[in-house]
Design a binder for these strands. Structure first.
Length: 211
DNA sequence: GCGACAG
DNA sequence: ATCTTGTCGC
């Protein structure tokens, strides 16, 4: 069993492997992962693949496994990645990009779940969380598309608070792996033409049994 | 020592 | 995340 302190050390080592470079690939398929907890130690992982830019559902996988790690702020990936990898085994479509319901580089050690999963799968990932975890920022303007940077203690930009819908709470976007901030924001906006949460994540959340 | 704290 | 339906508001 991995202990919290061991998990933290692993994050410090893995964070050096995170890439902020987008390779310019053509994106036709976007995946999203989400995990739901029905109860009594059960983790229900959902993976969906959506076409891009059409945003039509292409594939959906749901898989139950036992919960093996508790929720500890900053260590979310150790709780949710195992069940996601189980579901990943059944996925037939090869996505070009993966969205995570979590932060990426906007994390105490620069390795939020989106970054950790990106390194594990060797795939570009984007973190799109519903609330704040780490970093300092000012509230963005109220119009759709307005955003403000999230900075670490040294002033380095590690994420963006983005308004995907006018007058609605913003989402917290940060690059996971193999992608930069600007490209991450572009995909989040392109995937959220109507709702606050990007379509891939909304569908994954729904598939996991929450919506 | 005192808050903050993805899902 | 989870316990949980209708309801107030734009």
């Amino acid at each position: 069993m991995v202990t919290p302190s061991e998990a933290i050390e692993l994050q410090k080592r893995l964070s050096s492997r995170v890439s902020g470079r987008w390779d310019g690939r053509k994106v036709g398929m976007i995946a999203a992962a989400d995990v739901h907890f029905p109860g009594r130690g059960i983790s229900r992982a959902a993976l969906v693949v959506i076409s891009f830019p059409g945003l039509e559902l292409v594939e959906s996988i749901v898989r139950d496994t036992g919960t093996s790690f508790p929720y500890i702020p900053g260590l979310l990936s150790f709780r949710e990645i195992p069940p996601i990898l189980e579901a990943w085994k059944d996925l037939r479509t090869a996505p070009d990009l993966l969205f995570c319901d979590s932060h990426g580089t906007a994390h105490p050690r620069g390795l939020g779940m989106a970054s950790h999963l990106g390194i594990t799968l060797g795939l570009p990932t984007i973190g799109c969380a519903k609330s704040h975890l780490f970093g300092k920022y000012e509230q963005p303007g109220r119009e759709r598309g307005e955003r403000s940077p999230v900075k670490d203690r040294s002033g380095r930009i590690i994420g963006s608070v983005l308004r995907t819908r006018t007058g609605v709470r913003p989402v917290y976007v940060s690059p996971g792996h193999m992608i930069d901030m600007r490209t991450s924001i572009r995909f989040v906006m392109a995937c959220a033409p109507r709702f606050r949460i990007p379509v891939p994540l909304r569908m994954a959340h729904q598939a996991a049994g929450s919506g």
